[in-house]
Design a protein around this nucleic acid. Structure first.
Lengths: 377, 377
DNA sequence: CATTCCCGGAGATACGTTTCTCCATGAGCA
DNA sequence: TGCTCATGGAGAAACGTATCTCCGGGAATG
């Protein structure tokens, strides 16, 4: 039957070995036109239910699966979202953000799927041919650089881009970020309440928005409460440098009695350094670091962490992206032609401070920093 | 100039708003034919270098990007690999395998990328429309069920499938797995050497290959050394049930003096249970569990873990898949028509026992179980 | 001078959909 | 009877690329 359909449907010039059934085969087998098959399967035209169900049945029987490539070509929609992550070395993901990224990607995948999209992870540094070979309806970019070439290229192609991390100078469609300022202030306040008199900060040297905003919040807080900043910095992509910097921080003459570390490994590094200097945590030194890892629930003592709630971020960023993709037509495309007219809309998400033994000399407590109104809106 | 190219290249009937430059525009702008442009850009035909570079230059100037959809439609290759993972609940990934999966997926992505492919994560339970909407050159399936419908469908469509986990009864092209039998025997031996007299096992009730092979190895070892099995089981998808089962195991009259837990959370659950019963680890109870999480390096005491080396698995499985995709033509497709003629080729990968304080009363040591020859070859 | 051959490149077709346009038919209505 | 209209469906034009076939013309060869 399939063979017969093939023969009547195809040009006789190419006696194709019969591979997968195409829409033509279904049309022939059902005795209707291609149009009718397409309409019946996609629920589009005006057809009596009888025809619709008959066509569906024939398609099912032939094991017909529409060609994704042809559909994409015709409709201009691939149903694919990109997830781009900045890279330092050979490995496609940043080391320091690994747990964050894993959780965020998982939530993003889930959110995309539930709206009928699939997610492709594409490091910015990927081979160019890979980028060129996949049709993306939109892209999520993690922490884009100031004049990110990838974002610029996508923008030029008219592909919507939503960034995780407030963009410095990037033509993104929208963005999502944590309220880093509020988070840092919340931590400093928390440490103060626990009795800290001199709070130190451990950060990377990189100029990404996260580091910059957090540092600025710290410095302005220092100015306000009239504390001299105690601030150490290291190249964040170098795993060994973090331990050294932690050591340096505790070796200073103006040694802090509390430290906040901006990156995931800082907690264990600081703990090790404290041991070397014979400092007890939390009696002599209060410790907080930003991390998604549950390692810090099991350390001795357990360490208070700031969670950026990557699941929230991932879900939000994908939903914003899909909104932008499907909401096309609402936005006059003239927007692209008016640079700097108005900043892209942004959304600030709350962080969560998971209070453990390392940052309290009294009893435990959990706070969530309140969301603020985004600057961009 | 682009406008002119458009006008001369397009049919005058449709005065398309000028969007992205197509191959026609490049051809017109360079004063050559479409064929020449395609050949020049893909390095295919016989063209003088001068023409080639000129065409490339024009393409660059126009910002030409070939349409991935059109290319896929024409060539039948999308450059996309699927990564399918079995699901228990709403979330697309299995809880107990989270760290394993994250690492494995990361390695798989990396391996795919370095060979020019991109990876799409697609839970088996995804909405049907998502599966239908993405053109896959091949798929990696994690732990396929015995008569997995997803694998069957892919097989029917002629899509190569490589599985992570030895398939029970599935038409996969190839498979990769750990040598679970050797791993379990290695652990039992390790515990015996540390002084264990009665070793217990904590597993899930599910019938996947991993659980089955490990359990069988345990039982046959028990028979050989003449020990009565001490075996507790719980529904692996229920996080609370694991803790209960751990408790049950240590409450037995024939309480074991050593336990191996097959799943990630078993370690912490067993540790907590041991505390409740006043058992010291490792003095009264030796502990090992299978996990990729570095949590177990920080527990008190640190717990010995078996790593399945997901990075190895991910890399291998993807490379095997791409080999199968690109090696098409070597395999006579008649293979598909001869079911049961020969089992698919498989590869067994070594595991790694990371020895920590919980499983030794002497000094630390690290062993790696030797790889065996796969059954299938 | 006639023939062959290779170089450089043009034309046309197919990949498998979706969708726009249009047509035939028969019912309802004046 | 003649007109409009809704219904059910067919035809054909894209979408943008890769590739197969073929062709003109100059150089080499007899």
């Amino acid at each position: 039957m399939t063979a017969a359909a093939n023969q009547s449907g195809r040009r006789p010039t190419s006696p194709r070995r019969l591979e997968r059934a195409g829409i033509r085969d279904v049309a022939a087998a059902a005795g209707v036109s291609i149009t009718t098959v397409s309409d019946a399967l996609n629920g589009k035209g005006r057809l009596p239910d009888e025809t619709r169900s008959r066509v569906r049945e024939v398609a099912e029987r032939l094991g017909y699966r529409p060609s994704a490539a042809a559909r994409t070509l015709r409709t201009g929609r691939s149903g694919l979202l990109g997830l781009t992550v900045t890279t330092y070395g050979e490995e496609p993901f940043t080391f320091t953000e690994f747990a964050y990224f894993a959780e965020m990607a998982r939530a993003a995948t889930s959110a995309a799927l539930s709206r009928g999209y699939a997610l492709v992870v594409l490091p910015a540094s990927s081979r160019h041919d890979v980028w060129g070979n996949v049709a993306l309806d939109g892209t999520v970019v993690i922490d884009p650089a100031d004049h990110d070439p990838v974002v610029a290229e996508l923008h030029r192609q008219g592909v919507p881009v939503v960034s995780d991390g407030k963009p410095g100078n990037c033509p993104v469609t929208a963005w999502v970020d944590n309220d880093h300022e509020a988070a840092v202030l919340g931590i400093l306040e928390h440490l103060s309440e626990a009795g800290a008199r001199r709070i130190g900060l451990l950060t990377g040297t990189s100029t990404d928005t996260y580091t910059r905003l957090s540092t600025e919040a710290y410095l302005s807080w220092c100015a306000r409460v009239d504390q001299e900043p105690v601030h150490e910095t290291y190249p964040a992509h170098d795993p060994a440098a973090g331990a050294v910097a932690a050591d340096r921080l505790l070796a200073r003459p103006d040694r802090p009695d509390a430290v906040y570390g901006l990156f995931d490994p800082n907690g264990t590094d600081l703990l090790a350094a404290a041991r070397r200097y014979g400092l007890r945590v939390p009696e002599d030194l209060l410790l907080v670091c930003c991390s998604e890892s549950d390692v810090y629930a099991a350390t001795e003592p357990p360490i208070t962490t700031l969670s950026l709630r990557p699941r929230n971020i991932g879900t939000t960023v994908v939903n914003l992206l899909i909104d932008a993709i499907e909401g096309v037509g609402h936005q006059p495309s003239g927007r692209r032609l008016a640079p700097g007219a108005e900043p892209p809309p942004g959304r600030l998400m709350p962080t969560e401070l998971i209070v453990r033994a390392s940052s309290q000399r009294r009893h435990p407590r959990t706070t969530i920093s309140p969301p603020r109104t985004p600057d961009g809106v």
